[in-house]
Design a protein around this nucleic acid. Structure first.
Lengths: 221, 221
DNA sequence: GCATAGATTATCCAAATGGATTATTGATAT
DNA sequence: ATATCAATAATCCATTTGGATAATCTATGC
């Protein structure tokens, strides 16, 4: 039984996909979420043995978009496979999603059997649904470690951290505590703390260790 | 003025190197340490603007050996350059030191001018002293990301973490707190905490964030 | 000009963390 | 058989952290 979660801001879209999947008895629709924010908060109070195996995620959504949601959740829940659900084949967005941690993508208008086939294949063999053109771009990215920060290291932007916040996250990763950072930056420890809490909110986590996990695994530092 | 620290368990060795360097007015011998343990503890109460620029480190030492000391300190103090001081050209040990974060090595019997030249060059151009055969091994390591955990990922061993400790460090990195980990492993949160404190001692740090930095940057997880 | 966002600071409070210490058990090694 | 080590657990205590809330000040943009 493959547990699925569907994240899309349009209820009709969610229903269409859910319908397609419900014809196949291997799938259970665990829950549906209306945006990235909603999804992340549902994941937080989700028992670990009841987490989805696969999450189908729309990209364009209010509050927290699909890219950011995948970037956050794929760090926090490394077991879960994230598949982007798109209407059209927007290579750049999908490419960003892959970098954020998605394992592939599906077109919404794909037929029920095709979707079911792709997802069971993902479940059984671990191979995510990826088009040849995207696959080639990824290959290039991996084969060119010479390429500067540009390709791999600009994930900071998708979390919308301010310069000050990036700076403080960096210092957190170096093991400094509030008052150390305050001393170095000539600001109060209270301010540092406030920045940290803001950072956690942007990363949708609630501890330093979780923030650092995202920072390290997504190359924010 | 280049600030130097010398770490060697034999006082005569330290004195010889210190003498060679003191003939060149660019160098200041900041301090000497008698082993890795001693070195790390001196670093802890070392004002940041008074840290050494370059550390000359022997490998074979009691308490904490040079490899472990470099692995720890190069994570905690990324600005500092570590140069291994060896008597003979033991490729394997040097290679391990490079993996741990050393930027090169020097033979102890090298003449004063040669050592001075190597170190000023390191200081000015960033190029550490490395022999061609070691350089080749490093090239292979970088060019073969296919190679499994063997080459890059077995740094766990140099910190002598027990299986349980590795397991708990892993869970710490996932952002779990004491009681979560206790629940998952069916042990008390107090025990988890005890393990953590033992881990910190082995990594020579005193906070979770610092331990995670070492874990991430040295591939322990 | 006014709205908005970022940076700054503070206070109160509950919870988590780090450190020191002690003790028991089981396995391993000398 | 005895010493050592790893894992387990508890207690006490000081410090650090996370969260909520409120306020001020400065750019920046419309």
């Amino acid at each position: 039984m493959i547990r699925i979660a569907i994240v899309d801001d349009k209820i009709t879209n969610r229903r269409i996909v859910a319908d397609k999947l419900s014809r196949h008895p291997v799938f259970t629709i665990l829950f549906q979420a209306s945006d990235g924010e909603d999804f992340l908060s549902r994941m937080k109070d989700c028992r670990e043995d009841q987490q989805p195996h696969i999450v189908l995620m729309d990209i364009e959504m209010p509050n927290v978009n699909g890219i950011t949601a995948i970037a956050t959740a794929s760090s926090l829940y490394p077991e879960i496979r994230f598949v982007v659900l798109t209407i059209f084949d927007d290579e750049d967005k999908i490419f960003n999603a892959i970098k954020a941690g998605a394992c592939g993508y599906l077109l919404k208008e794909e037929s029920g059997p095709v979707i079911a086939d792709m997802l069971t294949n993902l479940w059984e063999s671990g191979a995510g649904p990826i088009s040849p053109s995207i696959a080639y771009k990824i290959l290039q990215m991996v084969q060119a470690p010479l390429a500067p920060a540009s390709a791999l290291n600009n994930s900071t932007e998708i979390f919308h951290l301010s310069e000050r916040e990036k700076q403080i996250l960096e210092m957190l990763s170096q093991g400094f505590e509030y008052k150390d950072i305050g001393n170095k930056l000539f600001i109060s420890a209270n301010t540092v703390k406030k920045h940290c809490i803001n950072i956690y909110q942007k990363l949708h986590v609630n501890s330093r260790a979780q923030a650092l996990r995202i920072a390290y695994t997504k190359g924010l530092i």
